[in-house]
Design a binder for these strands. Structure first.
Lengths: 226, 226
DNA sequence: GCTCCTCCTAATGTCGACATTCGGACAAGT
DNA sequence: ACTTGTCCGAATGTCGACATTAGGAGGAGC
């Protein structure tokens, strides 16, 4: 059995607010007022404060002394920071996962990739594909069995989603079929013993995503003029 | 001019508590009671709560639902997690610093290494050497100019100090002269363009420290018997 | 003697009230 | 016209009181 996780209101509140940010209820740059959120969620301001502190630690929001909290807006610079850091961490996660993953965990990774392939085949939504992508990497980190590393991923994960979602929102996006192949290659390498190559591919997998992302996020040259 | 940093009580409280943990006022495993701390520091419980949340994010303390917060105790497992993660992050930091460091920053690194050498020469305290070691790496991260990466280091730094300090407290320790040479090599590589070699050396620099650390932290086989 | 149940205590979780701070609007001075 | 000073509204920062919970002490039942 898996132990039940008991959390306070702050944890729930953080989840709600995070979801609201990720599904576009709060757009980048929007102000998150404590009293307002407290009223909306039906909880006290203390819990909201704690939740916002969590989200700040995840990089989803930024707050300044006595100036409130607002949703981080996704600039190419932010995307570059998030993805370079993620690439580095992913390198370690893959290496560890290759050493420690059980056959069952590897099989589950296969399953996720199959579901991704099916989703691409049936022309599924880009958001659904993104969810599968993230699930894949969640499982890799779990297989790595490294508490602090998993926490680092949890902190980055929200930012990764936010980056990809704004990209999708911009209409660019287009999850190519390439994604499926890349993940399938990763699973194969996790099964093998070519740790050097695995580390390189895992890192490049993320950096490749970054390249596509920053390019799409860079605002097109304005034609309009004042 | 450098902008003044305005923080609330929580920030100050976090610093005080962190220092208290690092200088041994609160030993690993000790309970940190909110009311007690609030009374000691002369502030409200809210601020203390916020401070403890920060420290938990740094990995210095752990808290459970309705069971309070206690100082993380340094096991070889913790040390291994902290140092493997640090090695990975340091690899990126060094690579970026090599690309972005100004000549002034590199000169300051030289200065730190010189001070380390002088300290070793004059048989200084292990704690002082540790401070210089950390200052060196602080500067590397600053030169890397990567906000999220720096934050990741800030979060790990306290744990690194805690690990090293308990090691010193155990009497093992003994900062060897080797440390000076290693840092001097790092600066040279930062000046050069051999980025692959730099990445490897930076990573191994940390992993080497880990090996010494985990060995010293592993409790000696008990002779006593029940 | 062992288990289970009930209470009790000490701590954390939660909340709303009050204090502090920011930034803009507006007016006065140069 | 530009700067400077003051006021004001709205938000966050801070605090103590109250609600809830965990874990142990103690007794009843077997």
């Amino acid at each position: 059995m898996k132990k039940v996780e008991r959390r306070g209101l702050a944890g729930d509140a953080a989840d709600r607010i995070r979801d609201a940010i990720l599904d576009g209820t709060f757009l980048p740059g929007a102000a998150l007022r404590e009293v307002e959120l407290a009223a909306t969620l039906g909880i006290g301001r203390g819990a909201v404060r704690e939740a916002l502190a969590s989200l700040e630690h995840e990089g989803l929001v930024q707050s300044e002394w006595h100036r409130g909290t607002r949703v981080t807006d996704v600039t190419p610079e932010v995307a570059e920071e998030v993805y370079t850091l993620r690439a580095t961490i992913e390198r370690l996660a893959s290496t560890l996962a290759a050493q420690r993953a059980t056959p069952a965990e590897l099989a589950e990774l296969d399953d996720v990739v199959d579901r991704m392939a099916a989703a691409v085949e049936s022309g599924a939504d880009a958001v659904d594909l993104l969810a599968l992508d993230i699930e894949f990497h969640d499982r890799v980190y779990r297989a790595a069995r490294h508490r602090r590393l998993s926490e680092a991923w949890l902190a980055l994960r929200s930012s990764v989603r936010l980056c990809q979602l704004t990209r999708i929102r911009l209409g660019r996006a287009g999850y190519r079929g390439l994604v499926v192949d890349e993940h399938r290659e990763l699973v194969e390498l996790l099964r093998g013993t070519a740790s050097k190559r695995l580390a390189r591919v895992a890192e490049e997998h993320v950096l490749g995503a970054m390249t596509a992302l920053t390019k799409d996020l860079t605002p097109e040259p304005e034609v309009q003029q004042s």
